[in-house]
Design a binder for these strands. Structure first.
Lengths: 342, 342
DNA sequence: TTGTACGCGTTATCAT
DNA sequence: ATGATAACGCGTACAA
């Protein structure tokens, strides 16, 4: 077992002082070319790797940012993470990812862990409206900037990066209405920071088309009990069917909900789009492989991650506290496919 | 902006020594209950959080493990990561994830970064057979254990956690043959550490059924050029069609390949399974929402992550160097659905 | 029961 | 051009 070399080891072996070695490796102008070359060669040969932990302790810069999401294996999230990762490659930041699993307490724990470990900044898609406001605020106050993404419905004063939820929902709803459907079931997640704006867009569209919002055509799923989502959708559809009040269209407010719904409809042998049209927010890469190909509101997932990351780095590097925070709403794209077109 | 409190601050404020404070917070028996209470209360009130960086420098333990995968947003990978995460919650480890993007040089860079930053262990799904063998070996030699998962076709001596690729492929192939298909196109990734065993299982099954392996019915996709995979599949299918040598079944060796293939077949208006049966390795959560519902070899993704993680922790905590490494092959499950059943 | 002093590996300041 | 030394925050052996 070969232990890691340190500056001290090299200094001893080369009969130099630690500081000379340190300066050589960082290519300081104070050191002669010959010495630099000798040190570098020696370091290379014995594959010296600087100890970032020590450097961090000294400089106070961790060169690490924390990311808190509800679930890494969610397709939308994993694509946003991809964007964040791309940014981090350019800016030389490491990424630590923590999951909240849509549980406020786990989210608080994640924030605590990241704070202890030391991060230069935090990207977070919060569990609910204003979840852990105090903790995030305190993190900010201690000099660690925070940027919100995706679920931006939160009172924390900072940059926020999401999409124009209301407009996107409006457009998707209108697409259903224009194809002749008026009995639209709206399925969404409970209090997940985007649901409200999407519902508003949905309602506004109904109103503009003189359709009354029917509370029977509304279902809220509890994201913190992820396994129950499927059941609650099944129950709702069965109920509507049994009461002779079946819808002819479904609006899915998240990608989990939308793809689950498609599978359920297939199992219930309900024809899409003949009997029920479906449109949804979705970011799976395979909507065209779905049954049937799914009409979707596509979010610029990678871009969300990338933009949020750059905004965070901007805050990290800011010399003076920023007061002028902005909320960035990226554009979505409506892609009609077979699930909503007869 | 409120700066972070340190032990020193608390000691000063409470007129105690740093070590008394330190010992109080770690609940040392040496300190009187009253002092401990006072210190803890004060720390709580001023929300003191210990500096993990300093602790790491002192103890040499980072309580962090590194994970290197080719792409976090791949469904299979993100589910494995989920398993790793679950394990880390129990064992109180932090996770740093790096992406290799199926590029040997990026993989090497990731290893370097993790080594600098300091990790207690590494989980890796390597880019190719024996990729960065030297670096991984050297990491091991410096006392950082490494565990391979998923792509375990690598000469590094260590624990490896994957699936019984050969048997799984054999069973999937046999399923196609039993449903009457003999002209089977095998689509796989080039040199990705699982492809070989899966191909072997495939070939063995053909042989056992007295079907000759036809090189025309074999396609290798370059994973490091991910965008080109779709094109190469389309080209292959068109070629087979044009030469009047179309297959009546497709075996997809990875989930990316399989779902892409389904989408392509739909666009080419080739009926599945009437004209072409499809079976594949896949771990998307929605195979039953696919078009048509996809027959799959389901891998125990989360379990792979969990087991690999626990094996790694075992190595980290091992008092003496382990010589007796094991390769764990978890069981897969074949789920026939509409894509392969007439 | 509490305090003193040192070291982890690095960077930075100040001498030589 | 090179070296000595302090400091980052914590844990711990040892002293009081």
């Amino acid at each position: 077992m070969t232990e890691r070399k340190t500056l001290k080891d090299i200094a001893r072996d080369l009969k130099l002082s630690i500081s000379t070695v340190s300066k050589s490796l960082s290519d300081s102008y104070e050191i002669s070319e010959s010495t630099k070359k000798m040190v570098k060669d020696y370091a290379e040969k014995h594959n010296y790797v600087p100890n970032k932990v020590a450097r961090t302790l000294k400089t106070g810069k961790t060169n690490t940012i924390g990311v808190i999401v509800f679930n890494i294996s969610n397709t939308f999230i994993s694509q946003v993470l991809d964007g964040i990762h791309k940014g981090s490659q350019i800016e030389k930041y490491d990424i630590i990812i923590m999951q909240s699993r849509d549980d406020v307490n786990l989210e608080r724990h994640a924030i605590e862990v990241l704070r202890m470990r030391g991060i230069d900044g935090l990207l977070i898609s919060p569990v609910t409206y204003n979840s852990n406001y105090e903790q995030l605020k305190s993190l900010q106050d201690s000099g660690i900037p925070v940027v919100l993404f995706d679920r931006v419905d939160h009172d924390l004063q900072t940059h926020k990066v999401g999409i124009d939820n209301q407009i996107s929902a409006y457009d998707a709803t209108e697409h259903l209405i224009n194809s002749g459907r008026k009995k639209i079931l709206h399925i969404t997640g409970k209090n997940i920071g985007v649901s409200e704006a999407r519902l508003e867009g949905f309602k506004k569209c109904l109103k503009d088309h003189k359709i009354e919002f029917d509370n029977n055509f509304y279902l809220e799923c509890d994201y913190s009990k992820h396994d129950e989502i499927e059941d609650s959708i099944i129950k709702k559809l069965n109920y509507l069917k049994a009461t002779g009040n079946m819808v002819n269209a479904i609006f899915g407010a998240t990608d989990d909900i939308t793809t689950l719904t498609l599978g359920i409809l297939a199992e219930m042998d309900i024809k899409v789009p003949e009997e029920v049209s479906v449109i949804g927010f979705s970011n799976i890469r395979i909507p065209k492989s779905l049954n049937p190909s799914l009409s979707t509101v596509v979010q610029p997932t990678e871009e969300i991650g990338l933009v949020a990351f750059h905004k965070l780095v901007e805050l990290i590097n800011a010399k003076y506290p920023i007061e002028d925070y902005e909320t960035i709403e990226l554009k979505t794209k409506l892609i009609p496919r077979r699930s909503s077109v007869l």
